[in-house]
Amino acid sequence: MTRGSTLPAHRLSPLSGRLAIPAQSRTSPAPPLGGFNTAPADEAHRLLLACLRSLRWARRIADHRPYPTLDALLAASDEAAYDLSPGDLAEALAAESLPGLPEDAYGAAHMALDAAHAAYEARFGHAFVICLDGVPADEAPDRVLEGIRSRLTNDPEDERVIAAEELRRLARQRLTGSIRAAGL
């Protein structure tokens, strides 16, 4: 007994065997990187050092240009930040300062923040760093003070890991802002 096909005959289109890739939506175009990619090395280093004061980090990112997209540049920034040696981390932390309070902040807030920061510096030997990306300006002072107070209880090695992560996030935020502001 022969069995007939249960499916209708199907003709292959002339495109069969080709991979169909759906078009990607472009809700917000990535900023162009042409200016950054083609800038002289010293100019690229200056821009990068304004984002994170580590010579090794800046050199590594600048030396690996060109980057096709902002996402690729940020991935390289993250990777370089993860690879910071203790000396590189100390170099970057030495150049950081506590985020400033808004002009209209009351005097007690300044005193509380200054005292907490002094205690942090005395314990860990460097400025407190925190990335406030996405935090409303009116909440920033409270977040900084809360962050210092909670991190003061950390073991120095644990705090080094947290500070390195905050520096990585800060570098990413600053780099994005610098590239967009410069129209690079």
Rank of each mutant, 00 (worst) to 15 (best):
M1N: 06
G4V: 15
S5G: 09
T6F: 07
P8R: 15
A9T: 13
A9G: 07
A9R: 15
R11Y: 03
L12S: 10
S13D: 13
S16P: 00
S16Q: 10
S16K: 06
L19K: 12
A20E: 13
A23N: 07
T27A: 15
S28R: 14
P29F: 10
P29Y: 07
P32M: 08
G35V: 04
F36R: 07
N37P: 01
T38F: 05
D42F: 12
L47T: 14
L48I: 09
L49I: 10
A50P: 04
C51V: 09
C51Q: 07
L52N: 04
S54C: 02
L55F: 03
R56W: 05
W57T: 00
A58L: 03
A58S: 12
R59G: 06
R60F: 03
I61H: 07
D63R: 14
D63P: 04
H64T: 13
R65P: 04
Y67V: 08
T69P: 00
A72Y: 03
L73T: 08
L74F: 00
A75M: 05
A76W: 02
A76C: 01
S77D: 03
D78A: 13
E79N: 05
D83C: 08
S85F: 13
P86Y: 12
L89W: 15
L89C: 09
A90Q: 13
A90I: 05
A92K: 14
A94Q: 10
E96P: 08
E96Q: 15
S97R: 13
S97N: 02
L98Q: 02
G100E: 09
P102T: 12
E103V: 10
E103W: 02
A108I: 09
A109K: 04
M111P: 00
M111G: 00
M111S: 14
A112M: 05
A116Q: 01
A116H: 06
A118M: 04
A119C: 06
A119H: 11
A119T: 07
A119Y: 03
A122N: 09
R123Y: 04
F124E: 01
H126K: 13
H126T: 05
A127H: 09
F128D: 00
V129Y: 00
V129P: 00
I130E: 00
C131L: 06
D133I: 04
D133G: 10
D133T: 15
G134H: 13
V135H: 14
P136W: 02
D138N: 08
D138C: 02
P141G: 07
P141Q: 08
P141Y: 10
R143F: 12
G147M: 09
G147E: 02
I148Q: 10
T153G: 08
T153C: 01
N154L: 06
D155E: 11
D155L: 01
R160D: 03
R160Y: 03
R160V: 00
V161E: 12
I162A: 15
A164H: 07
E166A: 12
E166F: 06
R168I: 00
R169L: 05
A171C: 07
R172E: 02
R174Q: 06
L175C: 04
T176G: 02
R180E: 15
A181Y: 03
A181G: 13
A182G: 11
L184P: 06
L184T: 05
